[in-house]
Amino acid sequence: MISPVTGEQPPLVALRDVSKRFASRMDLASRIAARVGAGPAQQVVRALDSVSLEVKQGEVLGLVGESGCGKSTLGRIVARILEPTSGERFWRGAPYSAFDGRSQRAERLAIQMIFQDPFASLNPRLRIVDVIGEAPVVHGLIGREDREAYVADLMARVGLDASTAKRFPHQFSGGQRSRIGIARALAVQPQFLVCDEAVAALDVSIQAQVLNLFIRLREELSLTYLFISHDLGVVRHLSDRVAIMYLGRVVELATAGEVFARPNHPYTQALLAEIPTIEPRKRAFQPIRGEIPSPLSPPPGCHFHPRCPHSTERCRREQPAFREVAPGHFSACHLNDTK
């Protein structure tokens, strides 16, 4: 769909004011405490707080932030695994709901998700040929008789030995399981992959191999990625643009070059200062204070104010607007008003 007004292609995926709330998960101790009246009853987790984001055709958008800030929730909402509590989602400019009909299967399969723990997401009782080959048969992308050849092709593409197709997931190493997870996602011919900490569980040498696979597949298949990772080094290497999240909100967004060279938001600046590098120099670690607060009761105003070295009275009261501070560079911080 090309916009008649601007002639520009709409973004592949767009989120507008997407929020997600969960009833809080309670561990056993807090459930008991709640029952005897000693603790709070069920609370609401504000996992995503009015997030707007676009992913352009063909780009890699990196998504970073500390654990619990809402990255996986955002990824799942993009991949249709979760429904937002409010807000809208668009695929090539049309709302997701436009693809609910039977005939729009290709659009619904167009976004696939790749998870951190490939073993947890693989059924241990299925052979690899079924893990990879079942969905394309069920969705009518291939005939059942073509399944083995189709799977062999995919396995070769992700660097697996196709003669192992009859084995079970536990017979593979961590790196091979990752490749199986990737082949399974590719089997339904997606255009967009949401990769959620897809290399986090892998050893360093294997991580490099799988990252290289992502780089190669992107070129070969013209894929678009939402690449979620807590590892800033990996994100910097792979991404065209980077979004930084903090406690349910996107606080900064720019090209990878911009974010790493000229971080605007104080949280981004703090995060970048923590990237450990292998350049050999002993340094005194200069950490930012405190921990990410609970999304059960996010601080008012700017969510970052309790940890921010620049926070003022206004930051405690008023949520900063997410606005453009340089061409294509967005940030949500009051400091930008005084510049």
Partner: peptide, 24 residues
């Protein structure tokens, strides 16, 4: 040497990382 070479910051952004082949 292989481990150090495969670290992203030791590679050109966006290009394939130098990698150690095979597995442990």
């Amino acid at each position: 040497r292989g481990l150090i070479d495969s670290v992203p910051s030791r590679n050109r952004r966006g290009e394939p990382l130098r990698q150690i082949p095979g597995m442990t």
